[in-house]
Design a protein around this nucleic acid. Structure first.
Lengths: 145, 145
DNA sequence: TTGTTTATTGCGAAAATTCGCAATAGGTAA
DNA sequence: TTACCTATTGCGAATTTTCGCAATAAACAA
């Protein structure tokens, strides 16, 4: 468990929300399961510990924690939705549509783009996590051969 | 109807796929319904004309036409998936999470970013349509007040 | 502690999306 | 035109995601 539970709980309470065992379990699950965690994976994991915890709650909590910026939504190549912890330093992915491979993109790469949107459009992009889809070197090479 | 049917059909046949009335109806529907068209909207529209056309087919054709780059997937602020024609000149959106408003982003803005990814990571980003989420001026102002 | 308020959960049903498979019908070549 | 091959459809069932509402239990104040 690498997230700061106490800090997160304080933040939620301060905003008038409640810290429930369900929310903690689900957060722990995402944290342990790593990157690109699907709702079903969370449910499976959590259901073993708390068999009465319902699917609906998993979905609701996942949404909720995303709104609170504790988690970040991640789009998979197939269009499905997954989640992961949204750490203090955002990171991004280049997702290859052909091989489903992931390339990490440091946040610094997005900084200038974000600033440009702010100055040109007065729009504040949420960059907690972005995924870009396309083709990696290897797949492009083998396709073009 | 503003898409070049003949050209698209030719392209599909050339790739070994078939041009069916269902596919044409669904494509026409997306074209007519405009931007950010949901599967349900397509089904409603198409179902009036062809009552036996099934939901499954709508989903399959939407996926298919996206793979063929005829349509582009668009993520809505709530995480749901929608579709739209992927014209010759891509355009992008700044989507406000608070008011769901859309700001058009000309493709030129993305060009340099795309090139950077290509030279730095040798990764070819598919930029047929991108959506960035965040907050627009108005919502930020009213929230911060 | 105890009581009050109301955010949150669990349940079952609804809605949305995907899957498997037999039947249909495009494309092509003779 | 006809016949063949197989991509695609429609159907119904499975799976995933959302919804509505009554019951529960966090947070907080007394």
């Amino acid at each position: 468990m690498s997230h700061n539970t106490a800090e997160i709980n304080r933040q939620l309470r301060k905003a008038g929300f409640r810290v429930t065992p369900q929310r903690q379990l689900i957060l722990d699950a995402v944290c342990q399961l790593g990157e690109h965690v699907t709702p079903e994976a969370v449910y499976d994991h959590v259901h073993r510990i708390a068999p009465t915890l319902s699917r609906a709650t998993v979905y609701r909590v996942l949404h909720f924690l995303t709104e609170q910026r504790v988690l970040a939504m991640v789009y998979m190549a197939d269009g499905r939705l997954a989640y992961e912890m949204s750490g203090p330093e955002p990171h991004h992915h280049l997702v290859c549509r052909s091989c489903d491979g992931l390339l990490e993109l440091p946040h610094s790469v997005l900084r200038s783009f974000r600033r440009a949107m702010e100055s040109q459009y007065d729009f504040e992009i949420d960059v907690s996590h972005l995924s870009f889809f396309g083709q990696c070197t290897d797949c492009r090479d083998s396709a073009g051969a």
